[in-house]
Amino acid sequence: MGDDLSYWARGTALAVARYAVIVATVGVLISVLPRTVAPRIQPRSPRPAQLRREAISSIVSAVIFSSILYVSVMAHLISPQPFESLPIWRWAVALLVLLIGHDTWFYWTHRLLHTRAFWPIHQLHHQSRTPTVLTAYAFHPLEALVNGAFILPASLITPLSYPVLVAFMVTMIARNAMAHGGREVFPAGRDGHPRLGWMTTVTHHDLHHQRGAGNYGLYFSFWDRIMGTERADYLDAYRRARNGASVGVSPQPIEGDPVAETPAAHSGQRP
């Protein structure tokens, strides 16, 4: 038992440290970019109380994520394979499958958390109307459990190894922190649309925090487009952000499942 607790403690400390290093790195990188390259999306800045709340929630979430992985391995719910058991290209495919699978898990559980029954859990995350890199893990403990549980179905759809799991976690944290970073780093094409239109931009998720509805994807935009939940004002907000015109925070309160209440507000239609 003592060895098990020591192993859990070391793994958890590593998970918290990994999160802190990645989030800090992303925060520094986007902050030093010129405004012409990464303009601010919102005109206002977060308050110190928000940053403190996000930091505490993030540590709790990192502990929960690490604990889920620990229990899953110790209970043989997942069995990571030796890295040398498969060629590198197979592990590259496994990482891609993990990202697509996680985006799918995130989209549908995110939609569920926006229903009235589960909104009280998700509301903690949405207290950050002006998100920061720390918002990435600022979850209610129950929401962290839902997010962390992805590792169980993931083991059924693709082989896992510890290097692939680490690569997935690093990618997930960095991409999540970037999405909450408040600076639009995704370049626009000549038509004003995102050059990587199949990926969610920072404005894409920032609007979700501002309005509280629509734009539920994490890495990719295809589920929002298929299900008609990409906000109708997204591309206009993206163009304004790229042109250096801040996108103001909506004064309307966030409550319930806005998809069911006001579907016309984010029809998903793209010009």
Rank of each mutant, 00 (worst) to 15 (best):
97 V>Q: 10
97 V>D: 02
97 V>W: 10
99 L>G: 12
100 I>G: 08
100 I>V: 15
102 H>C: 00
103 D>Y: 09
103 D>E: 12
104 T>K: 10
105 W>G: 01
105 W>Q: 05
107 Y>Q: 12
107 Y>L: 10
108 W>I: 03
108 W>S: 10
108 W>T: 07
109 T>L: 03
110 H>V: 06
111 R>H: 13
111 R>M: 05
116 R>A: 11
116 R>Q: 01
122 H>Y: 10
123 Q>E: 15
124 L>A: 14
124 L>Q: 12
124 L>M: 10
127 Q>S: 09
127 Q>M: 15
128 S>A: 15
129 R>D: 00
134 L>F: 15
137 Y>N: 01
138 A>N: 11
138 A>K: 03
141 P>K: 08
142 L>G: 14
142 L>S: 14
143 E>R: 07
144 A>C: 08
148 G>F: 14
148 G>Q: 13
149 A>Q: 06
150 F>K: 08
151 I>A: 01
155 S>K: 08
158 T>Q: 11
159 P>T: 04
160 L>M: 15
160 L>F: 06
161 S>G: 07
164 V>I: 12
166 V>N: 02
166 V>F: 07
168 F>Y: 14
170 V>C: 05
172 M>W: 14
172 M>T: 06
172 M>S: 11
172 M>Q: 15
174 A>N: 00
175 R>D: 10
177 A>D: 02
182 G>A: 06
183 R>A: 09
184 E>H: 03
184 E>N: 04
185 V>H: 05
187 P>Q: 07
189 G>T: 08
189 G>P: 07
190 R>N: 08
192 G>C: 09
192 G>M: 01
196 L>I: 05
198 W>M: 03
198 W>R: 08
198 W>H: 12
202 V>D: 13
205 H>D: 05
206 D>P: 01
210 Q>N: 13
211 R>G: 13
212 G>E: 06
214 G>H: 06
214 G>S: 07
214 G>T: 02
216 Y>I: 05
217 G>C: 15
218 L>F: 11
219 Y>K: 02
219 Y>P: 03
219 Y>W: 01
220 F>L: 12
221 S>F: 01
